[in-house]
Simulated assay, not measured.
Amino acid sequence: MPAGDIDSVICWHAKTPEHVRKLVWASDPGWMWVYVETPLIRACIYSKKGYCVDTNGGMLVRQRSGWFSSSRVAYFLQKHDESEFQNIGSTYRRSKDVFRERIARYIDDDPELAERIRRSNAYRDKTILMLRDYDPTKY
């Protein structure tokens, strides 16, 4: 069965079945782990080298297979009414203005949250978690 015919893959570790993880397919870049999902927006993490579920239920992103070989790991966003994903940058480093601005521009239909993200100084993963509050229907 072609990957594009699969809606999503749900996985968990046998020791922690209460921690369910979801993977979705996009033609570009491929299989992605759903990091945040609401009815209005979804944020995913793509890792070129793949993923695995840890015994504590957490999702591990494979990053290295040797000393000098690191994987491309990036965040992708998708609004509920769009078919394509938007690449907003690497998962590494502290949130810099460019990263926050990319997110804010993408969610400019929720100006309050966009401004909160612009003013934020959180690490990238915490900035992405702010998308749980995304709601353009307020305006």
Score class of each variant (00 low, 15 high):
5 D>S: 12
8 S>G: 09
11 C>G: 14
16 T>L: 02
16 T>H: 03
19 H>Y: 11
19 H>I: 07
21 R>K: 15
22 K>W: 08
26 A>K: 10
30 G>S: 08
31 W>I: 13
31 W>R: 12
39 P>I: 01
40 L>T: 10
46 Y>T: 09
47 S>C: 09
49 K>M: 15
50 G>W: 05
51 Y>R: 05
52 C>K: 12
54 D>H: 11
54 D>K: 09
56 N>L: 12
57 G>D: 08
57 G>K: 05
59 M>P: 01
62 R>K: 14
63 Q>A: 13
63 Q>T: 14
63 Q>S: 13
63 Q>C: 13
65 S>W: 14
65 S>F: 14
66 G>S: 14
70 S>D: 14
74 A>Y: 00
76 F>A: 02
78 Q>H: 02
82 E>I: 00
83 S>V: 09
83 S>G: 13
84 E>C: 02
84 E>H: 06
86 Q>H: 13
90 S>K: 05
93 R>W: 10
95 S>F: 09
96 K>R: 11
98 V>M: 10
99 F>K: 04
100 R>M: 13
100 R>E: 11
100 R>D: 11
101 E>T: 13
101 E>I: 01
106 Y>L: 00
108 D>M: 04
111 P>L: 03
111 P>F: 01
111 P>V: 05
112 E>F: 06
113 L>N: 10
114 A>K: 06
122 A>R: 11
123 Y>T: 05
124 R>V: 10
125 D>V: 08
131 L>F: 07
131 L>Q: 08
131 L>R: 04
132 R>E: 12
133 D>Y: 08
135 D>G: 03
135 D>M: 01
137 T>V: 00
139 Y>S: 09
